[in-house]
Design a protein around this nucleic acid. Structure first.
Lengths: 225, 225
DNA sequence: TACGCAAGCATTATCGATTTTTTTGGCATT
DNA sequence: AATGCCAAAAAAATCGATAATGCTTGCGTA
């Protein structure tokens, strides 16, 4: 009988798992903005050693989700209205840029990716799936994916995560006020696929600004810190 | 007699020192693009333990200077003409944006900072100081500093470092062909201080594009990897 | 009472050793 | 000659313990 190659204990490293777990905790607000991230506490919570934690925190620093203070440990990045507005403004600028480039390089393969990720998002939503948020992000990034500028894409992805954090902070109020977000998504997708740069960008930015304005309203009430 | 508080062994952490050292080695090209970064080797070279190295490398990952491959270690980010052109294009877009904002928020304090950092750069240059490169970066960032958008600033700073790496790769040929870079710097500074947005931005982008075109020429000859 | 100092405590940072995983090189088989 | 398999070596990842550092509290003094 064929000797089964020994299965690795896990297919990802402890650092990777810790990174994803911590990132999630911060983004969804389970770890509060400004909160001190004590190694010991996390070690217990995530069942792993100090090294993976430390490394994961270093990685999160680059994502602007964690602040590292030399000799004084780590803390979750603080939030503020100014920070939110900065993120919104940058997102509008950078995504506009990326979407224009993406459409300029338009190809059938890309159009298919966009349609596919949109479909998956819609499906996840109608099912009430856990991973709707992931699909939502995937859709938005798929739109930009074709821009042929990995660094720009990375910036957009980072900003997306920073932004979504505020969505969670604002609470579930958003779920009700569902506007016609689905329509907006469709509109963006269709314009993008049709190669209508101006329409696509205008709708995308509108989409962000509407959500943004709404969020600012909510954040005023809920205190951030 | 007043009891002297015990001096710390060093005023910065080993991680911080390692981070700066490694970053420098990569930017100036002492560590080649794509080169494997073995922990043991670096441990010996930098006289420190594995933990600080590992952490420093994680931090450099966020700067796009190091790639992390799960379970397979780290390597210096590879270079390519496409990558260089991407950096150049992004820099033009983002710095243009930042400079416009900076000028829009213009204040006396900021103008003084700009003048000061320019002076220091000129002085370092005339003296042939080691730290001319640092001063040069400081000057360019000072121009943008007033944009009131820390994240944008961070992006610009990152892109600056990525770009300068190519300058070093192209070799010292640049030192001779000194065009009239000093004039260009002055022009940018004066326009910025005078609040002439269009002139300042135009000159800044020209400055980058000229250097960029020149570099692309050199990079064609020298093989990058 | 307010201030400065110092000891004790909490936490971070670092090291050295161990465990896992990947890579390499040789050997047998087709 | 090429392929696949295994064992040995190299490297990365992780752990547990220790050293360094920052923070807090309580005491003595003015």
């Amino acid at each position: 009988m064929r000797q089964e190659t020994i299965q690795p204990v896990s297919d990802t490293s402890a650092t990777q798992r810790t990174y994803l777990a911590l990132r999630r905790l911060i983004v969804i607000g389970d770890i509060k903005p400004g909160e001190k991230l004590k190694i010991e506490g996390l070690r217990a919570k995530l069942h792993t050693g100090a090294s993976p934690i430390r490394e994961a925190l270093s990685l999160l620093t680059s994502d602007n989700l964690v602040e590292r203070i030399d000799q004084r440990g780590f803390r979750a990045a603080p939030t503020s209205q100014a920070n939110f507005e900065e993120i919104l403004a940058l997102r509008c600028e950078l995504e506009d840029m990326a979407l224009r480039m993406s459409i300029a390089n338009r190809s059938e393969a890309w159009e298919e990716d966009v349609v596919l990720s949109h479909h998956r998002m819609v499906r996840a939503k109608s099912r009430g799936d856990e991973d709707f948020e992931d699909m939502h992000k995937a859709f938005h990034l798929a739109l930009l994916e074709n821009c042929n500028s990995p660094i720009l894409l990375k910036f957009c992805s980072q900003l997306y995560d920073l932004n979504i954090r505020y969505r969670y902070l604002a609470g579930s109020a958003l779920n009700y006020k569902q506007r016609d977000v689905s329509k907006e998504h469709e509109g963006i997708m269709n314009a993008a696929i049709a190669g209508d740069v101006e329409a696509a960008c205008e709708q995308l930015l509108n989409h962000y600004r509407k959500t943004g304005a709404f969020l600012v309203g909510l954040l005023d009430e809920a205190d951030l810190a």
